[in-house]
Design a binder for these strands. Structure first.
Lengths: 150, 150
DNA sequence: CACGCAGAGTTCCCTAAGGGAACCCCGACA
DNA sequence: TGTCGGGGTTCCCTTAGGGAACTCTGCGTG
């Protein structure tokens, strides 16, 4: 809902928040991902206000993470993930993985992920794109990059 | 800022949002991560309202992702990441990675990550914890887990 | 011993964003 | 010609964020 616009900061986290920082945006993306692709479906599934849903969908379309396209000769539309959007869903999987580990409690995780390639129930793991070793928050140094401010 | 409380949904994404869904929360965590650990530092760095910062810090402490501890005999406190919090920072790296790829533009990414293990500038890559192969949003099936609703 | 200062919050008011419900528009179909 | 259903608008109300001023607490200094 932010009043302060994060997009202007020289910070990639802030820029991502500018796209999906709205409270509902990640859940909308999840819905589109799992197959709730129409306005009514998303609205009913999330219980979100129609007004806010309209705004959020518009914003996500503007940002190029989903596409709005007609599925009928009547004015009916569905929303589909773009490639940019699919990669945001990767982020959602990491989110889910964190909550599965830290917040699921007795009941266990609400959703399981089966990896196509190996057929096993699994979870995502963060690895270094260069050497393939584990790469977590404690395993890196931060250096100013070319787009750094000042 | 959400009015609707996500924590009750049987959805790990919603549960994560309940912890860091507030507009500023991810940036506060980032600040704590990179070494802005005191109230004044964070407030100055982010330009966030002191009121909201107080609330957000309190919430993050409650959720167990950061710890508040005195660093002086005067009433002075600093905030440090817990293990639970450190793993949330993993999520922030994925966020940053997405924006580095899709939003950095001409200037390039504002921050680079050097992996301790191999010493190279790198980025995080999502792999299957089971087989080690790439694991992205398109590479998985979703199945109801033990904690699924209904 | 009074003063000042700095960190860490409160308090108060204002505005804008979310929630909710009702309303609208358009093309099919009966 | 009426009505149905998807996909939005509009309007009003409430509440959370922004901003600035105020407070409280202990040290450190003259």
């Amino acid at each position: 809902m932010q009043r302060t616009k994060f997009g202007e900061m020289a910070c990639s986290i802030a820029r991502t928040l500018d796209v999906i920082g709205g409270p509902w945006s990640p859940l909308i993306l999840r819905d589109v991902w799992v197959g709730f692709t129409r306005f009514e479906q998303i609205q009913a599934d999330l219980g979100i206000s129609r007004k806010v849903l309209t705004e959020r969908l518009g914003h996500l379309v503007e940002c190029g993470v989903i596409e709005r396209r007609p599925y009928d000769r009547r004015p009916r539309y569905e929303y589909v993930l773009t490639e940019k959007g699919m990669e945001l869903v990767d982020l959602l999987m990491v989110m889910a993985g964190w909550a599965d580990r830290w917040l699921a409690g007795e009941a266990g995780p609400p959703v399981l992920y089966r990896h196509h390639a190996c057929g096993e129930i699994s979870r995502v793991d963060l690895r270094c794109a260069h050497c393939g070793g584990p790469m977590h928050a404690g395993d890196v140094d931060l250096l100013p990059g070319p787009g750094a401010a000042v």
